[in-house]
């Protein structure tokens, strides 16, 4: 199975994950500072910054894109409950 490496910059932990993993599946377990509200792509509580590796993330869905726009997110921001890691190296941090 293809793998990817996600680094949570705020706690200095890199997790090797199967391609297709959503950040929400691991960020809490590893103790990173990304926090969640609704957990279904509506409230934007889990907005996080992709420090590097955006090209290794899934495309924004229509729902995620709408919520990010409504919250004036920059192009570097994603919702941790929606975005999937597709491969390679990705570095994220809360905010």
């Amino acid at each position: 199975m293809p793998k990817a490496n996600v680094t949570f910059e705020d706690i200095g932990v890199t997790v090797t994950v199967p391609a297709g993993t959503r950040l929400i599946e691991i960020s809490e377990k590893v103790g990173a500072g990304i926090t969640y509200g609704c957990r279904e792509g509506e409230c934007a509580t889990c907005m996080m910054k992709i420090v590097s590796g955006m090209e290794n993330m899934s495309e924004r869905s229509v729902l995620e894109d709408k919520v990010l726009q409504e919250n004036m997110a920059s192009r570097k921001h994603r919702l941790a409950c929606q975005a999937q890691v597709l491969g390679g190296e990705v570095v994220v941090r809360p905010g």
């Binding site: 490496n5 706690i11 200095g12 932990v13 890199t14 997790v15 090797t16 994950v17 199967p18 993993t21 599946e25 691991i26 377990k29 590893v30 103790g31």
Partner: peptide, 18 residues
Amino acid sequence: KHLTGRNARRVIDMSELF
């Protein structure tokens, strides 16, 4: 160490989290 930002950087497999 976590409180003071001195926790060691580490690499783990996702399966260890579960």
